[in-house]
Design a protein around this nucleic acid. Structure first.
Lengths: 340, 340
DNA sequence: CCTCGTTGGAAAGACGTTTTTGCAAACTCC
DNA sequence: GGAGTTTGCAAAAACGTCTTTCCAACGAGG
């Protein structure tokens, strides 16, 4: 108020610098043939005036929307992976940060329809989290020529695709080794029935690990809502076996919390009678549980950051440096596997 | 591939309909003077051709960005309200849905800087969740002339503002009444020390309620990380008082879960020895707890939907129908307050 | 001195809409 | 049947940037 506060544009900068708008544009974008001296002067003046290029105008001329979409693959019609809010929120925040740093805006798709090329919002590229087999959205996007990066790999995906993922085979193996070192002789795997690459990788790593040791696999898939209640049910069943496991590796922290409750209800002490480890979706929660939970940290922030970065590369460079990214994991030993 | 797949624009529609682009624009936007018959025909042809207006071009000419920002107010420099992922995610998804329905894209701000009018991404308007007193971002946005809607009211806010909120006074009172009806004689309030309107409203409602009954208030503010651990600590202190409460109302579900643990650890039975109620941030979790928790449901989806809707009104209409929205709450009685 | 290549920079078109203005044709009214 | 008024639509100007094209000045080589 008082100040006219006219948004200053490239024209104003040009006038102030005594050059044409062309020169300003070239100077700021490193294009054209200009002596470094002029470039520098224009940049300085633009800075002084607080010039911020209008993203809409730029997008219009370069033919982009400036938008990246982020969606969680839908199993059936589940209203978002309700159980994984923390993992998902961390991933999203990191992806958003990276997108903004590259001049894009990340928009959350509240459902498959939001990114539908025919009906939804127009985006330059999309990140699909944990695609399920035959994910319709992924197919639609690719068919429409929209760049797609998945976190986790598309099961059965034939087409060449871009993804970022953890090395779940290695992570699972490390955790099983850890449990064995802490004295486990009979390790059960508690996972989900979701048809995503994560499940497949973990189950395969587990099967291979057991086979190498000549051990009998003890695999349970919890109800796909992945609540503590589901973990409680599966753990109760496991613990009442004639030959119950002496260690459980859960691939979702909610399932592990439920397992903790089930153990307590049956008077099974963790870690004395049962070792318990989990994959983390929420960084603090496992540490706050009683006892604190040994965790395989999947580093969702880095997943999100990498996914957005890869997507931007895909959009801006003709040939991205890499089409696949592996994000490092980390085994964090806590009280639930003994010797804290 | 094979099909040229030229993006069809307003020009193609005009050609197909045998009219000018002006007429197409007018027909589609309900502007200008056109007989209904022409309008209808143009709309039909546009539909048949699958015409989708280019949002970027539209935004350019109307001088908008088409972006709405959503940020969680930062207390100090906390990396997002970590504890409230579920509440927050539900709110965000609903806001995103509403934004898209109105032709906007909602972008999550991964920190205050992202929406800074000087340095961040340019948005038409912003939703700030639970603003703390003297929130810098709110001030900056308003000063820059960017429309702001807050969920929860800005403490000490002098300027006229737009917000959507629950009637926490009424909600708290209802819950206290419920506890009293279920036999509580000494009700403690467990809340946070956050300087947001939510805390103030609840504390005031509690103080008033106690005063009306001549009861002594028993108020505790948990550490602001609001974890189960924090709830555990506060509950332990309360239960070890010479005259402990026979009911606790927690304003965050995590605190209530911690309370449940503390009660169990001390052999205090819920609901027999202690009634426990909580405000919900996660719809299923309180139901899944053991015992299931009586809940004050704040309806975060509706908060998010309303906030986005109000923001759009603010941007598109000179004078919005209303500047404040109250979203209904709901008391859900469960096992933790007896008689399920 | 003339030609040619290089350098620095400006002019103008384009991106796909919306909006304003303009202008005939078709009515209405006396 | 002429003067106004309404109706239906088109032409053109924006919006702010990037990009292509073009031109003048300058230097070098013969």
């Amino acid at each position: 108020m008082g100040t006219p506060r006219q948004r200053i544009g490239i024209k104003e900068v040009a006038a102030a610098a005594g050059v044409s708008v062309t020169t300003v544009s070239h100077a700021l974008n490193g294009k054209g043939r200009l002596p470094e001296e002029t470039r520098e002067r224009v940049r300085r003046i633009a800075d002084e005036l607080g010039y911020r290029p209008n993203a809409t105008a730029r997008n219009l001329v370069v033919g982009k929307t400036g938008l990246l979409g982020l969606a969680v693959s839908q199993q059936g019609g589940a209203p978002l992976a309700v159980t994984d809010f923390a993992y998902f929120a961390q991933l999203m925040m990191a992806a958003s940060t990276e997108a903004i740093a590259n001049g894009y805006a990340l928009v959350m798709a509240p459902g498959d329809a939001a990114l539908n090329p025919q009906a939804g919002i127009a985006v330059d590229g999309a990140i699909i989290v944990d695609p399920v087999r035959d994910d319709g959205l992924v197919a639609q996007l690719q068919q429409a020529g929209i760049a797609v990066v998945t976190t986790g790999r598309l099961p059965g995906g034939d087409a060449p695709s871009c993804w970022v993922d953890n090395d779940h085979i290695a992570g699972t193996t490390e955790m099983l080794d850890h449990l064995e070192r802490r004295g486990a002789r009979r390790i059960a795997l508690m996972t989900s029935a979701l048809d995503i690459s994560y499940s497949h990788d973990v189950e395969q790593a587990y099967a291979d690990w057991c086979e190498r040791r000549g051990a009998e696999p003890l695999l349970r898939r919890a109800a796909s809502d992945l609540t503590e209640r589901a973990g409680y049910a599966v753990a109760s069943e496991l613990l009442s076996l004639p030959e119950p496991p002496d260690a459980i590796f859960s691939t979702y922290d909610r399932l592990a919390f439920g397992t903790l409750l089930a153990a307590e209800a049956r008077g099974v002490r963790v870690p004395d009678d049962l070792l318990l480890a989990t994959t983390a979706t929420e960084s603090q929660a496992p540490d706050e549980a009683r006892p604190s939970l040994t965790t395989l940290d999947l580093n969702p922030e880095e997943i999100g950051r990498s996914a957005a970065g890869l997507l931007v590369d895909l959009l801006e460079e003709q040939e991205p440096a890499q089409r696949h990214v592996l994000v490092p994991h980390r085994v964090i030993a806590r009280a639930s596997t003994g010797r804290p």
